[in-house]
Structures are given as structure tokens and as C-alpha cells.
Design a protein around this nucleic acid. Structure first.
Lengths: 169, 169
DNA sequence: CAAATAAGTCAACATGACTGACATAACTCT
DNA sequence: AGAGTTATGTCAGTCATGTTGACTTATTTG
């Protein structure tokens, strides 16, 4: 009975530590690729969410990342200047600048994602059958309760994705 | 058959994003407490591993955290100066300085850990029966293969814990 | 037209990582 | 005993990424 069931204190501490080490390794591959092109982890985050949600506006991005306008501006400007992201006025509300990945941006986003997806795929396989659901529910339930609804929206059907230029449009 | 079994691309991307949001929230409670006393996340890490492994030496700590001596020195000095950590020469090898948490240090470590342990405990409960093992294996398998052995050692029976002063000793 | 909103900008600052060089003490080996 | 290695600490400088608060401009909305 109950071979390893109840989450004792030891297990919880172990999970705290594993989460630290796991997250560190999880970010290590893209970090290396990024530094080779003079970017950092912040660029990755911005590019990822723009690639996942083509046509979101700056305010949406700020609310996803929960960083300040200034922090975003620094990296966003570089991504735009170097041709990874395209800004386009929203004609319905010309105050908004909608963000789209260029082909170059999509390609970088894909490259950065690959090792992370592979790592997670490996980890799920190692977790064993049924691990996918447990891992997903575990991570989701780690969120602050008052953020779960918003994150659920972001994570499944991506935020207010509008129509936009298919690059050269 | 196979209701949600195979890790499709969507699920993997979802897990990438969940890991980002989960880790951010996971660190948010201690971060807040720390900033109230003028410390940062780096202090937390050092204090945590010292409290978990009383009597480890600086080199051990560096290899656990994989940061540079300089980065460690900065926060370690503060933790020592403010009475959270005690340094004690190893009499078997007087080059080494063994690190011990003081009562004050243990107390802070406990306070910082509480919200994280609670969060993980909640998340395990939400993951459902059997989730503990899956979560643990999932996180462990996220590690770089060549680090798994070392981390396993760190996470279960804590590194070379030597005998040491029980505070005022 | 006034007020609110979206975005961008400036200046200044804090944290925590990095590098490379160097000093000191203590241990180890021949 | 002396040479080389190891453990620690320190100096000086850099970088990435976060913060604050104030302000401008363009645009939409009431």
C-alpha cells in the first residue's frame, strides 16, 4: 500500500530543487544559440510569443510577459531593426502597432524551440505513460490561481490573433 | 484508444509555455520576501543549498550552482556579514571554508521555502493520483543527460555533509 | 473639444551574471 | 625542503535584463 503516494516533505524539497535544475537546463540550449547572434533570453521570449500570436499588439505582449514597457522596448527594437519582427499599424485602431514575425523571425523561433521541444518530448517519454497529463496539470497548477484563466487562454488558443501581412504584404 | 497519449506538437509547445509561466510564479513569493530585506534570488539559492547541506565547502557550492566565484562571493559575503551563514575552517584541510546556516539562516530558509513547498503540494494534488512520480521523473529527465547523476546525488542524499558547529559551537 | 489610450522615449538605477588577473594560504608530492 | 597544485578571496570592468517615473505624440472615444 502507498509505496510512494503521499507527498512527504522530502519529495517536495526534491521537486523544488529539480525545478531549479530543470529550468536552468531547459533554457541553456536557446541561450547558447542566442548569444551567438548577440541576443539574450528576453529576445527569445518576445520572438516566441510574437511567432505564436502573429498580430498581437504591444499591450498584449506586455501583459503576457509582465515586464515594463522599457524592458520590452529595448529588445523589441532590436528584433525589428534586425528584421525578425515586423510592425504594422492596425487600421481599425491606428494607435496600435501589430507585431508579426518575418520569415527570418519564424525561422529563428523554430530553431530556438527545437531543443526545448525535444527536451520536453524526451522528458515525457521518461515520465512514462500518462505522464503528459500529469506534467501538464502539475505545471498549470503551479500558477497563481488568479492567473490561471489568463494563462489558459494564452496557452491554448492564442491571444487575439488578427489578420496580417504574410511578410511582404 | 489513445485519448491524449501521444505528445503532439501542440502539447509540447503548451508545456514550453507552461514551464515559463510556472517557473515565474514559483519564484515570485520568495522574491518578494527577499526584496523586503534587501536580498535577491541569488541569496536564496545560496542559503537554500547551505541549509540543505550544512558543512559544504565553497567549491561544492560553486559546482552545484554553476556560477562563477565572483557571483557567489558577492552574495555569500552579505549572507555571512548579516549573520545568516557561518564560515568555519575545515580542520582536516584548512584551505577549505565550510559553510553552515545559523539559526537565523535556517529560519529565513524555512520562510522562503514555505510558499514554494505549498505551491508544489497544491500542484501535485491537482495533478491527481500518481502525479508525484510523473512530475518527479518528468523534471529529472529534463536535465542534461550528463548532469543527471550529479543532480541525483545533490537532490537525494545531500553532498558531502560534514560534521560542524551547531551554531554557537 | 477634452479625456483616455497606445506607443515610444529619456535618464537613472539595481541585480546578478560574466571575464581575467592576481594574492594568499595550505596541502601534496618528489 | 621546495615546487606545484588547490581553495578561497579579491579587484576591476562588462553585459543583460529588469526596475522607476516622467514625458511626448498620435489617435480614439465620450
Amino acid at each position: 500500500m502507498r509505496p510512494d503516494e503521499e507527498p512527504d516533505a522530502d519529495r517536495l524539497v526534491r521537486l523544488v530543487e529539480l525545478l531549479f535544475f530543470a529550468y536552468r537546463d531547459f533554457t541553456s540550449d536557446p541561450d547558447q544559440m542566442l548569444s551567438a547572434i548577440g541576443f539574450g533570453r528576453a529576445h527569445h521570449r518576445v520572438l516566441h510569443f510574437v511567432a505564436r500570436n502573429p498580430g498581437l499588439c504591444v499591450a498584449d505582449l506586455l501583459s503576457i510577459l509582465t515586464i515594463t514597457k522599457q524592458s520590452l522596448a529595448r529588445v523589441l527594437k532590436q528584433l525589428v531593426d534586425e528584421g525578425y519582427i515586423l510592425q504594422q499599424r492596425n487600421e481599425q485602431d491606428r494607435r496600435e502597432r501589430l507585431l508579426f514575425p518575418t520569415e527570418k523571425g519564424r525561422s529563428l523561433a523554430t530553431s530556438l524551440a527545437r531543443p526545448q521541444l525535444e527536451r520536453i518530448s524526451r522528458a515525457l517519454a521518461a515520465a512514462g505513460p500518462g505522464g503528459e497529463l500529469h506534467a501538464e496539470r502539475f505545471l498549470f497548477s503551479m500558477l497563481n490561481a488568479d492567473e490561471q484563466v489568463q494563462v489558459a487562454r494564452i496557452v491554448r488558443r492564442q491571444v487575439g490573433a488578427r489578420q496580417g501581412p504574410e511578410d511582404g504584404a
